[in-house]
Design a protein around this nucleic acid. Sequence first.
RNA 1: GCGGACGUGGCGAAAUCGGUAGACGCAGCAGACUUAAAAUCUGCCGGCCCAGUGUCAUGCGGGUUCAAGUCCCGCCGUCCGCACCA
Length: 849
Amino acid sequence: MTRETRFGALAADARWQQAWEAANSFATTDSGDKPKAYILEMFPYPSGRIHMGHVRNYAMGDVLARFKRMTGHDVLHPMGWDAFGMPAENAAMEKGVHPGGWTRDNIASMRGQLKRLGLAIDWSRELATCEPDYYGQEQALFLDLFAHGLVTRKHSYVNWDPVDMTVLANEQVIDGRGWRSGALVEKKKLSQWFLKITDFAEELLEGLESLDKWPDKVRLMQENWIGKSQGLEFSFRLAGGAVGFDVFTTRPDTLYGASFAAISPDHPLAEKLAKDSPELAAFIELCRRQGTAAEQLDTAEKMGFDTGISVEHPLDANWHLPVWVVNYVLMDYGTGAIFGCPAHDQRDLDFAHKYELPVHRVIADGDETAQHFTGTEAWTGPGKLVNSHFLDGMTIDEAKAAVIARAEHEGWGKGTTVWRLRDWGVSRQRYWGTPIPFIHCPACGMVPVPRAQLPVVLPEDADFSVPGNPLDRHPTWKHVACPSCGGEAVRETDTLDTFVDSSWYFLRFASAPSDKPFDPEVIRRWLPVDQYIGGIEHAILHLLYARFWTRALNKLGMIDIREPFASLFTQGMVTHETYSRAQGEGQPPLFFTPDEIARTADGATLEADGAPVDVGRVIKMSKSKKNVVDPDAILDQYGADAARWFMLSDSPPERDLPWSEAGIEGAWRFVQRLWRLFGDTGNVGDGGEDKALARKLHQAIAGVAADIESLGFNKAVAKIHALANEIEKATPSATRAEACRTLILLVAPMMPHLAEEAWAALPDGQRTTAMIADAAWPAADPALLVDDEVTIAIQMAGKLRDTMTIAKGLDKDSTEAAALARPRIVELLAGATPKKVIVVPDRLVNIVP
RNA sequence: GCGGACGUGGCGAAAUCGGUAGACGCAGCAGACUUAAAAUCUGCCGGCCCAGUGUCAUGCGGGUUCAAGUCCCGCCGUCCGCACCA
């Protein structure tokens, strides 16, 4: 092959992508004689076009996958589509296209875009969650979980959008309104399907400790989300002795500080009392209408309604506490009822002040022995018990234990654990999702669809012209015979939350038989995922659900592992500055896309009129701010390798990456620079060796490998730059030619097309494999990893005064002597004897005069 | 309000164990080559001054240490998560 002076990226991209496909280069080998590496990036939602965030995500995973192949691993690196979800259905409503057609078209175009990146993916394992061969197996797993009691139906309050006629997830409610329709969201009690994730609360929490290769941030977020609280649950009796209600508290030590009891507006007792009290009914209605948005909570006034009834204090039956219905008590945490202790809880204090309820101090504030409470700030710090009879003088922890012990002994309460985590409601009143495989029979009740009848396939002919669930109003689909009695029955028309689809796809990638969800033997070989890479936005929901499914399937005996992802990496976003012009009073600014803009040294102008625009902050690329750069346009102009290289350069991968035109051009220039350097593999000069360059080369081999292994791609990039600089400066030698050849291998994981092109252009006999895709990572010679000389610092009183180059490993005494003999040091000491000399071999000498 | 992360040149950053702060890149400046441009190459590139291996400098103020970007205490700022969670 004759060598071009410029690297033709577009032709090379296409050529090598075809070559890899023809050779089936990235098919996963199940041979099992090499160590396995399962590298997975979170699979994309097929929105239609890939964005720069995808490019960054898949570039990182691809470097790791290619590197693992080069270092002798069997690599599983698959790709698929999280293909169910509301956007497809919205498109159907807005544009009259079928969700299936819309989704499959999007998949086809995004697959094409991803392939242009040159990813080392085993495309034979591609899957889409919207296809029956996937969701049918998901239905089978759902029935397995049901058979083991992990699926329930229960009534619960949901966010109901009255316009779209569907349940909304909490995240889809923005300031009390449906995110799509803008309608005021109602609380509605509906019968819903739930997965019993709370059964696993304790082990999901404990399991976090074993995930030492997960970011601390994610583990902490999950820990807070699971929200374990330990305390006392006890029963209040109504004054007079009738059965009252249960409350939960984490502060049983403050029981003698109680001044009222409070129940949630949604508490059954409140609802019962409201039947006879229109005032209370109106109050409850008022509370339900109040928003729960974050800003409103800050300012929301504490409100209460005195029911007129009272309860007996559990430690003193003659002490009666009034029962209030209170807007700040939540029905879905604890028991939906509390006892109020104003002195030691800020909310209770605010409430007590407003309604002039008593405030009893029971924890002394520090050294203070004040028996009474004043002020507007509740004391929640440590202290000794006061005003508390048998508890007086105890610490908070001692008092907690004493009260719990007494409650258990006397039988009115017990120590318990309460979780913030709720069971996972998976019912969605949508068409474009996995049908829940159940049949409602008037005679037999809820009947699972028999295995032989799976998959329950979505009907193609659905009507999207009106809001609501198309499955529910489909003329025929839901009408079936009961599998149990044969009588007339109807299918469940709810579909599964799409987070279910993404809770087990990593298993299906490893093993996808047609007759079952997966083969346990094959799962044993590949799982857990060795490196999972994706966005921080999935820190809680997806990652928690996937952990739950893995543990649930483990409990069912279907898989051995308890945790799906051994190592997790959360990458930063791709950002770009914004360009805008103010529009006038009360108008939002007008934004411009980067390709409408000419960037100048100190500002930017609109190309259309040459006038300046405002350059805004560097923020996440988003359509509304128009600060997006289309990957296709970049690939057309610079090719895949420059795009990949830029994505890996400069910013640490966990941090945001500011996209810039100058940056991608810099990457492009470096691609060309490497191409020129790769042409020097035959230029051996006089054939001699260059020991210094050999050291730098081998240090780079080891350093780049370590950086890729630890996902420090920006550092690997810097080391490759530094090595390229050294090679360029060196005079031709056998070592230099060898370094040029080795450099091809070092950049191969990051710039695979350039590497293949350069590999193919090598003189005959210099290639170890036909394609570099099959080549091995070069071995670093340990002898060359250390320098034989080091330049060390000489400090006086901690300030740098001189440096000297000495033999590496020189002993302390000789180092000290050499330092003290330096003319500059002699001059500075001026004959004085140093008080102290600290020598750190190979590092520095610090002289204390 | 609670929890967490992060603050280093004009910009993205590096400094892996408490040991020469600013590697590497971007932008910029000066120069070479060229009829010119592109491309390429060379040099400079934190502040200050008396221009020195001078001095100050890693958000601010303290502390520990022979030595602090790194450890400790207290502030300030930015970002993220959760949020009336009993």
